[in-house]
Amino acid sequence: MSSTLEIHDLVVAPPGLAPVLRGVDLRVEAGQRAALVGPSGAGKTTLLRAVAGLESPAAGAIILGGVSQTELPAHRRRVAMVFQEPRLLPNLSVADNVALPLRAGGVGRARRREIARERLGEVGLGGFAERRVAGLSGGEQQRVALARALCADPELLLLDEPLAALDPNRREALRRMIVETQRERGLTTLVVTHDRSEAAELGESVALMLEGRIVQHGDPREMFERPASGAAARFFGISNLLRLPDAAAGDLWAIRPERVVLGDGPFRGLVVEAVYRGTYVRLILDWAGQRVEAFAAPGEAPGVGDEARFELPGEHLWRLPKGSSPRVGSVERR
């Protein structure tokens, strides 16, 4: 069974320190997979730990399936968590590690070994039940941790940068496994990552966290194309925040660098920087004092000092909400 997660105005402040969470609001519908993304230090892990019951909030509410979790101790919450490190007990076998939540739930030994084996099979570690954890690779250990979380049969699955410690190949495989497992079980899932592309892949929706608040939550495409603020735009790689000649003064328009069309068009800019990046050339244009970033194919890129014509297709231009971006100036002047 999975349940809707609601977080209302959550504040976490370590004693004597500035608050890490400054009023978080977030809603993840039952059976949905949400990715929580943001720069390091934004409070993502703290939010996950608070939902798991490992941090006590100073204010606010955490509600799962309509039941307040805020006052419940961690072991009473119907929440399973996969940490950045596998956190396996080295004195137990793989199967006993996986079965830990069942043991805590009072399931008999034979039955819990049976379930543990099933879960291990689901994460592709069928023959590993009797092994010691010490001999496993990092990716295998993290899969054991995932199997353990599934064994808890939770209403909510929390994943804290589960791929961070893995090399790129293993990361890809585990990412696919997380998505598939979640989909099959329809398990409400909140996964933390600092990587925006990973967030787009892992989350059916993406929530951006900046400085202890969720500043935007929507589907991945919206986050990449329709940022709610200059800071959000910058996090999702939109370096172009521009004032357009025929638009209202004070309006700021965002456009992704890969959407800027070079070669023809109504605007002219001076190439001030051209960096070869293997599959493309990254260009910085000076457009009447504004900085425009664009990508060109290696054979067709103009050089530094050349004049380049470009177009800003209207369907890819997005007007930032008013007053949302005090930092845009710094982007321009960079």
Binding site: A80, P101, A104
Partner: peptide, 10 residues
Amino acid sequence: EMASTAGASP
């Protein structure tokens, strides 16, 4: 912490 989130009482 892991044990707590796995449902183990103190």
